[in-house]
Amino acid sequence: MLYDFRSFVNPGHYAFGKGTFNHLGELIDRRKTPTNDWTVFMIDHFFQDKENILNRIPKSDKDLVIFIDSTEEPKTTLVNKYRDQILAHQDTLPAVMVGMGGGTAMDYAKSTGLMVTNPGDSKDYQGLDLIKNEGIYTICIPTITGTGAEVSMTAVLSGPEKKLGIKCDYTIPNEVIFDPELLATVPNEDRFFTGMDNFIHNVESMNGSWINSMGLAFAEKSNDITVEVFMNKYRDQLEADEKMMVASIMGGNSTTYGQVGVCHALSYGLAVVLGTHHGVGNCIVFNQLEKYYPEGYKTFKEMQAAQGVEIPANITAGCTEEQFDQMVEISWALEHMWDNAFGHDWKNKISKEEIKDLFKRM
């Protein structure tokens, strides 16, 4: 491993089960003080016209609501923009940041809450333990499940030069509301891509050199549940969604005690150069990785067949050599992922030419 010791942090509070979303107002009120008495809501734009959900959000006149475009990956430039918007909204800092949606909305809430209390540009904090000050108290509410962002110590951002997370103990949400009823409107294709994000990072953790017994236990159980869900073992959608919420929690924890690998390294290259969304990008990449993860690949293809989902193909067909080279360099720079996948001598196990060939097959 690239570090020898770390005392890990998990979210401080969980609320799990049907109807827990109804208690959001109580949780926010606990954090308010006479001076810091307002809230920032960062909500997936999917809910912008969903009055049945918006009317349940405990918003006061002082609060700020920001709708997040989840069709694109989180960007450092937008984190900076949202930070400035929050600081200009009131004379005091907010008591609470609420991130509601998928990984994009939650990662924006996590990262923006940190940038409110840390100076400079968010791109300068892409990396491990670069944040110095604790951020705003953050509550995450997943409305699609599989990314693990709700329990992860990473907020993944695309910057001007790289896609890399702000990763530290302070990035972990302070509180998480897991209400499976909020997943009812998720399209089946989106369920698949985010579920496969969970499956894939578990496969990478389990097959990596960084894994320990704690991470392995989380990853194995998480993938047992994920396979049951996507092989249609649960006839009731609500039960399946609740199970996937558990799988996502465990999957997020597996990467805390492990690390991702080949798929995520290549997926980051696709995201920066082509803007490919994370879950879809992981599936496009993993579709070419039978050589590296044969057992995981076999199960992945079985789940794809069971769900009848088409994985996009030929997305790099129009790329120039310069674009391929850029994707390779972005991926190659993620040394911790390659170290996990192949060990400290990873540069002797895979070449830039092999990586470029993989991109050209996508």
Rank of each mutant, 00 (worst) to 15 (best):
V116M: 02
D121T: 08
G135N: 11
D124Y: 09
K123E: 15
K110W: 09
G135D: 06
P94S: 04
L87H: 08
D84T: 14
K75T: 06
Y137E: 10
E134D: 15
T77L: 08
K123P: 00
K132D: 13
N80M: 04
N52C: 06
D61P: 03
G101Y: 04
I66T: 08
K110R: 10
K132I: 10
D107E: 13
V65W: 04
V116W: 03
V65G: 04
M97V: 04
P58V: 11
K110H: 10
V79L: 00
E73H: 12
M97N: 01
I86N: 00
R83S: 05
Q126D: 11
M97Q: 03
L54G: 03
A105Y: 07
A88V: 00
L93S: 11
N80C: 02
T117Q: 13
N52H: 15
L78K: 13
L93D: 08
Y137D: 11
M97H: 03
D61T: 15
N52I: 08
Y82L: 08
V79I: 14
T104C: 06
D84H: 01
T104F: 10
V65N: 00
S122E: 12
A95K: 12
M100L: 14
L78T: 14
D124S: 15
D124H: 15
Y108D: 04
H89D: 07
V96W: 01
K81F: 06
V65P: 01
D61W: 07
Y137S: 04
A95N: 14
P119Q: 11
R56C: 06
T76W: 03
V96F: 08
D121V: 13
I136Q: 06
S70I: 05
A95R: 09
F67H: 09
Y108A: 01
D107I: 01
D91G: 10
M97F: 11
Y137V: 12
H89Y: 10
D61H: 14
G135W: 11
D84E: 13
M106A: 02
I131F: 09
N118T: 12
G127P: 11
Y137K: 09
G113W: 06
F67S: 05
E72M: 05
D91M: 01
A95F: 08
I131V: 15
D84S: 08
S111G: 03
M115T: 11
E134V: 07
S111D: 05
N118K: 08
K110S: 06
D124K: 15
P94M: 01
M115E: 12
V96A: 05
E134F: 08
E72I: 10
A88P: 11
T76D: 01
M100Q: 12
I68F: 03
V98N: 01
K62W: 06
N55E: 14
V116N: 07
Q85E: 14
P119Y: 09
D129T: 13
Q126R: 10
L78A: 00
T77P: 01
S111A: 15
E73W: 05
N118Q: 09
V79M: 02
D107A: 02
Q126H: 09
K59E: 14
G99K: 01
P74R: 02
I68G: 06
T117V: 02
I66K: 00
G101F: 00
D69A: 04
N52F: 12
S122K: 12
L130I: 14
Q126Y: 04
E73Q: 09
V96N: 02
N133K: 15
G101H: 06
L78V: 14
T76C: 14
G120S: 15
K132H: 15
N55L: 11
D121K: 15
I53T: 12
N118S: 05
I68T: 08
K62R: 11
S70A: 13
